[in-house]
Design a protein around this nucleic acid. Structure first.
Lengths: 165, 165
DNA sequence: GTTGTCATACTCGGATAGCTCGTGTCCGAGTAAAAAGGG
DNA sequence: CCCTTTTTACTCGGACACGAGCTATCCGAGTATGACAAC
């Protein structure tokens, strides 16, 4: 089991975008600089987030990205699904229907118990992620992080946000 | 997020091994035939299960694999961890320590909130898997599956199990 | 001074190499059983 | 008939190609801005 590396970057970017003022945008170049990552790589994931309706992209000069919804309406699950895709981690290959003891497909209307158990676990995983909103992450950050980091973040946002109706 | 394909095979194999009589073993060739898979490939995962203490391997003629513990003492989590490895799905790369606003490492003693949230979700996932024992899976199987499948499975076990103290 | 046009620079978007990791396969080491030979 | 030795065949174990998916990068399409010229 392994999550894509880009998930971490995506969450950090959405968290940073949540801190800029209403309607303002921030270009991918600033997001990349802030996190010490390559802009070209971030664009790939930002595009996925925009395609999932989490971010909005504004083209042209003074353009950039901004949240498409309020931080209260964005969960970590939304971000993870946008990057990783909606398919469950455990994909039952129905190997019970293979081998010499296989019956006709109609005999397998009931779902595989193993698959059901794995999906139960994944539902629990997604449930926790779905209950964790972006605003919760931000609140924890403001409580726990070093004040200098928070100050630097605020200054960076102030410096790099762009107006855009 | 994607689980290894071998997890499904590993669970099915442990479930089949749980059905043979006390102390008896079953060779990998039979397991592969029953599931319609390649023996060479199964061996790779069976070896991982044996290394994790879930299975025991008996070499030589009339050898094979058997459960190292009772089905009540084996959980799906054990099997998944044996195949996928113990590392969590989300591995925090500490990108918060990168970029121009980075501070000295001592400023990051508190864990990253994003990482904490992701690990919370994964704990929930593992908790559900850890509560699902192999005997539960077997009970569901015996309740839900087609009687012909169960009969074939019993006959196959009876036919392919090998004595071995 | 105002307005329309044009060039410009900046943004995101899609298509393209490189690389790690899982999938799938092969051949070799080790062992218990079975067979053969001698007592 | 029983015991020892040898052979045999079967098992698992580790090492080796192949391929998919993620990582990382580059160049092209589109747009608001700003300058410029005509009115």
């Amino acid at each position: 089991m392994k999550l894509s590396e880009g998930v971490e970057a995506a969450i950090h970017c959405t968290a940073l975008l949540a801190q800029l003022e209403e309607g303002k945008t921030m270009p991918a170049s600033a997001l990349a600089e802030y996190h010490g990552l390559s802009q070209s790589y971030l664009l790939k994931h930002l595009k996925a987030l925009a395609g999932a309706g989490i971010l909005e992209s504004v083209p042209g000069p003074h353009g950039g990205y901004r949240l498409a919804r309020l931080p209260e309406q964005i969960t970590l699950l939304d971000v993870v699904l946008a990057i990783e895709g909606p398919k469950p981690a455990f994909r039952c290959a129905e190997i019970r229907q293979r081998g010499p003891g296989a019956l006709e497909p109609a005999a397998y209307v009931k779902p595989c118990g193993i698959n059901a158990a794995m999906l139960r676990a994944e539902r629990a995983y997604r449930s926790v992620l779905g209950e964790t909103r972006l605003c919760d992450v931000l609140a924890d950050y403001r409580n726990d992080a070093d004040p200098r980091s928070i100050a630097f973040g605020c200054a960076f946002v102030e410096r790099n946000q762009r107006p855009q109706g």
